[in-house]
Design a protein around this nucleic acid. Structure first.
Lengths: 167, 167
DNA sequence: GTCTATAATTTGATAGAC
DNA sequence: GTCTATCAAATTATAGAC
């Protein structure tokens, strides 16, 4: 994949995680990358194509980051928690698919599908280490990001998910 | 407060809970109520005014609904859970302020403030019956709505919050 | 691949008649 | 209070030059 394409995905991901699907535009993405909006359309014909590609890459990246953390000896639940926590601390950004899930009803079907796929992946991943508790744990993580973001304070996320360290 | 004003708030609340702040328009609200968008501007000069009024009324209503449930003998945590669950079952709508919180960064300050106020009210309310656990419980509730909504299945919410019945 | 230019639509908001 | 009419801006998207 070309550098330009990657740069577009980077810009779009940052903007969606900051403002949501209906809150980002091709012009903003183009401006972040330093090109014109028509050039973004060359790489991704329509808005749903771009957003779906962002969500797909997000899931793949997340899965790889989890693998790395587990190979380093981090327990899986803590790995999920740490990845979310560090994004909140670094840029104040919450889970891409948490944002997309909330916009659900007004989302183009292919984008909603990618968001669903990420959440299902998360539930399955957490069920593997905590049978029957995947949904509950992912709920707590997504909700804690939502609240921490509203409070503008990443430490709220840490407090709201402290108990998961015991798992 | 006039009936018309209430009807506008009703329509706006439904639309925001379905599509978010940046996903609803004065024209859509007007169309739901059966009037023109200029008439909506008569009651609420600008979009942030309308959204903030919706959020304020939501918090007041929620507090009243909690009181009623508690007077009927329902434990507080279960009351929170039941109110969210019934909205999901009835209309597939999640918490208004959960949606607004997610959009946080791109929200007009007065709207973000109302969303924050609701979440703080929730944390305080839950801390009263479960000291130190308010954030964790509200996180779980908001996150479970987010996931259930993405799955298009309210029973996901029930499963993800089952353990709260013990509290 | 990227650009300029532009079409078609939607948006938030206002002016002024009734 | 509600309407018609309208504005300026932004949006998604396309055509065609380079």
């Amino acid at each position: 994949m070309s550098d330009r394409r990657e740069a577009i995905l980077d810009g779009a991901e940052r903007l969606i995680r900051a403002n949501g699907y209906s809150g980002f535009s091709f012009r903003e993405v183009a401006s972040e990358v330093g090109i014109k909006s028509a050039s973004v359309h060359y790489h991704f014909p329509a808005k749903p194509d771009l957003a779906a590609a962002v969500a797909e890459r997000y899931r793949e990246r997340f899965a790889k980051a989890l693998e790395v953390k587990e190979k380093q000896g981090t327990a899986r639940v803590e790995a999920w928690r740490a990845i979310f926590h560090s994004a909140l601390k670094r840029d104040g950004l919450m889970c891409l698919c948490g944002i997309l899930a909330v916009e659900g009803a007004s989302l183009p079907p292919q984008v909603a599908k990618e968001a669903r796929a990420f959440l299902e992946f998360g539930i399955a991943s957490l069920n593997e280490v905590c049978p029957g508790e995947g949904v509950r744990i992912l709920s707590q993580l997504e909700g804690a990001m939502l609240i921490a973001r509203s409070a503008g304070d990443p430490s709220v996320f840490a407090r709201a998910t402290e108990d998961l360290l015991a798992a």
